[in-house]
Each structure stands twice: as C-alpha cells, then as structure tokens.
C-alpha cells in the first residue's frame, strides 16, 4: 500500500481515506440545511468558495460518532473533480503514514461503502469507497429530494 491515510475514528469503527483524495478539512458549528435532505445527507458547506454536499458519516456507516459535542469536522474529498464533504461529527481524525502501512495486504470489502480493510497493529481500518458514497448521494438527492 502506498500513500498516507487519514483515519476517522467512529465508535467501534475506524474509517480510512487516502490523503491524496482529501482536499481539506473544514470545522463548523452547524451544517446548513439542504432542501430535500434525507438519508445520510447532512446539508451543505462552502469550501474554497464552492458549495459542497455533506454526508453524515456515522449515519452512512451505522455507527456513532467517536465523541460528543464540539464542532463538526467535515473531511472534503475530491471524487473525479467533484467534491463531497464527509461529516465525521466530533470524532477524532488522525493519520497513518505510508511507512506504517507499507507491505500490508488489504482484505476485501465488507460493507456497501467500504472498499477494503487493512489491519494496523490489531486495529482494523475500513477504507471508504467515496465513489459509492457519491453515487448514493446523487440517488438520494434526485429522488427523495425531488419533491414529487
């Protein structure tokens, strides 16, 4: 495995993302409302003056946030020139450096939005499939939010 990983620490579930796909992290007290938001859609934020749809990561993965209170940490990922915000709530966000995961063999998926798992010193980390999350967000906002 190559490249560093960003890790979102939910309660009982660690989720990872390649840092190359991370455009930035935004901290905000409140995530503004988006008409028709439902499912795991959390709202919208602006990132570098561009609007970005935000999804609720604990809700998408059926886990609770790693910590209560405090501002929302929104990890903005770039998916084929499009941005998507992953709201980690107040969960801790940490990094795994390339040296720590070099030579590790990932195990195949295990969930709708997890591509693969890696095991780092007995700690299992599910690698997020941001493309699948994006497609699901498109589906939700085209149907449930369609108002018809």
């Amino acid at each position: 495995m190559d490249g560093d990983r960003l890790v979102i620490e939910l309660k009982g579930l660690n989720l990872g993302l390649g840092t190359k796909a991370v455009a930035g992290i935004v901290e905000t007290e409140k995530i503004p409302f988006m008409p028709g938001q439902s499912g795991f859609i959390a709202g919208i934020i602006s990132f570098r003056n561009e609007p970005v749809t935000v999804i609720d990561i604990p809700k998408a993965f059926g886990a609770a946030a790693g910590a209560e209170g405090g501002p929302h940490k929104v990890v903005v990922v770039k998916e084929k020139n499009r941005h998507l915000g992953l709201d980690a709530g107040s969960s801790a966000v940490s990094f795994l450096w390339e040296e720590e995961i070099k030579g590790l063999s990932p195990a195949q998926g295990g969930g709708k939005y997890i591509k693969e798992f890696i095991d780092v010193n007995g700690r299992s980390i599910g690698m997020i499939d941001s493309a699948a999350l994006f497609e699901e967000a498109v589906r939700i906002l085209s149907t449930e939010g369609s108002g018809v």
Binding site: P32, M34, P35, G36, I44, I45, S46, N49, E50, P51, T53, R82, L84, F134, A137, V138, I140, L141, S142, G145, S146, G147, V148
Partner: peptide, 20 residues
Amino acid sequence: PPMSKLWGVSGIAVVGDGRP
C-alpha cells in the same frame, strides 16, 4: 452533482461570510 437535480432550488450563492 450530487445536487444537480435538487428540488425547489435553481442555484446557489456563497455569500460574503462564506455561507452557501
């Protein structure tokens, strides 16, 4: 995308304080 077919709104502006 993913909000290109959002119902009830036709566009978005990012106002002076950065809010969409």
